[in-house]
Design a binder for these strands. Structure first.
Lengths: 156, 156
DNA sequence: CTAATTCCTCAAGCTAACTTGAGGTCAAGC
DNA sequence: GCTTGACCTCAAGTTAGCTTGAGGAATTAG
């Protein structure tokens, strides 16, 4: 338990953050955390990395990708863990994202309401089928959402 | 162009729906559409399948998975394409989903607002870090979202 | 009739965010 | 000092929703 200079092992971090060890290794691989190594090549984290990782999880919940988060963290001087001030700055970014999401979901809902009566599904003038800005589940992977879709409708 | 009994080829459907041919084949594979075959083994769709596929796309936009949609379509008598009445029924389901999503995003936003001042990130009492109900990006794949996460934090 | 399209069926690839496993090393308790 | 548990590094697998490609057959235009 007594670790020199108050450094934490990956297991400690896992316990503290509730993440799997493999996930933390993955974060390191992606450059989100930068633990040092002891002479046996084992990762040694700072206490502040717990906060850093918590920040990562929160950002993920808000819909940011690993890459997004990496960029955000990169804006911090010296690659340090976010402070109160940083946090305030990030918060407003998050806030905007949430607002945008809520707004487009609301829009979608309104369109849906308008559609209940018509039951048209006739593509040409259905507001839901031809949305201006899409949100919903901006899923991962090559999952084209309608508006982005290019007309790749020809076969081999 | 003149097709017997007014049946459509997969290419026609692709053009009409704006989807890729491969996507439509995939939908068939997943049991979302059930085209017949001509004697040359080529798919022949009904005109109503355009509506059916439009429905699928709309449901996807609202965040339903292929499996969800399959289940929904399965509730239709005779596996037919949704009618006005069906559409009204589905609409209310969609409506609920949207409401739930909007609500939890709003909650998240409120928590975030409350957090801007504190800048704690101290896990123990941060409302965002310990959310009751998570939404955000309920991503695909083995991406555990915080509350669901089991304590698999031990290594090999 | 023939060339150009379009279509067919697999099988494999892609993306994000991880997990799982094999094979081996390190550290802590007794 | 030695066993046991924690850790290490790859490589490969997982999920959803498709796309891409190879190799071949059917349709359609001229």
């Amino acid at each position: 338990m007594l670790r020199p200079t108050d450094l934490l092992s990956i297991g400690d971090i896992a316990t503290r953050t509730g993440l799997a060890v493999s996930a933390i290794r993955y974060y390191e691989e992606q450059g989100l955390v930068l633990p040092e190594r002891n002479r046996g090549n084992q990762r040694r984290f700072l206490r502040s990395d717990i906060r850093r990782i918590s920040f990562i999880r929160i950002a993920q919940q808000l819909g940011l990708t690993i890459a997004d988060i990496k960029d955000l963290l990169a804006t911090l001087p010296n690659g340090r863990t976010p402070t109160k001030k940083d946090w305030a700055r990030f918060s407003s970014i998050f806030h905007e994202r949430l607002d945008a999401k809520i707004e487009s979901l609301t829009l979608l809902k309104e369109n849906l309401d308008g559609c209940i009566g018509c039951g048209c599904l006739s593509l040409s003038h259905c507001a839901i089928y031809n949305p201006q800005d899409t949100v919903a589940e901006t899923g991962h992977g090559p999952r084209n959402i309608l508006p982005t879709m290019e007309t790749t409708q020809k076969d081999a």
